[in-house]
Amino acid sequence: MMKIAIASGKGGTGKTFVATNLFHALYKNNYRTKLVDCDAEAPNSIAFFKTKLIKESDVTQLVPVIKTDNCTFCGQCHEYCNYNAIFILPPMKIIKVIEDLCHGCGACSVACKFGAISEKPVSLGKVASYSLKNKPLLLEAKMNIGVMSPVTVIKAAISQIDNQSDIVILDAPPGTSCPFIQTVASADFVILVTEPTPFGLSDLKQSVETLRKINKPTGVIINRAGLGNNQVREYLLREEIPLLLEIPFKKEIAASYSRGEIMSETDSFFAQQLLSVVENINEQYGNSNNKW
């Protein structure tokens, strides 16, 4: 199995556009493939396909519950908590868990010597599995509104990928912080989608630096080529980063995408271009059975 993450530092460069089209091109050409939407804060990939929800699992995290009868207000749990999620005022006999700040590490339970701390699960989001023509081919990570970090939900979605596919496409969250890292860490290859503008270049550089740090092979797709300037191409040449594909800027592409259409369905040339991108990557980087 080969996992390819589609990512970009800057949002809105066409990550989901590339991910959904790639998946569709592979699917139509009888590849055993799967699409996993890891942009848990703003998942959108599934809406492009006629799918059926087949399974939904809740993703939870444990948070402490303090039994004040047993609590001596010694403050050890507060001391152990590295996230400031336990508020304590010993003279007033007040102790409270701030659930939003808790990361579920369990340190407070280890700290408490009086049996005053137990734990309960709280929901962070869902991983939904969808079928396309009766085959379970799509997974979606979706964080609950008001939850602070999508990382746990993303990890849960990635862990649900089974061995039934040869090429898995991961639609990654934007940026280069934790959620991005968690997604690309599990991939064999990362396709960075950028646009040829100063903002696009700046964010691309940051993504490339991050991926180099964790030794992930990467290539770039320039979307909306023709707009902006030539600096992204010059940068790729200078840094010897493979330019996998250029997708020209056309207002019709943007308009068709806005209607929820999959371009590679009607544009067989584009579908073929995407397939060759994947085949080249697969030849060079496939079957490494990548683990974290």
Partner: peptide
């Protein structure tokens, strides 16, 4: 934010 870090707000 330095790459890879928790974007905690």
């Amino acid at each position: 934010l330095s790459p890879g870090e928790e974007n905690s707000g």
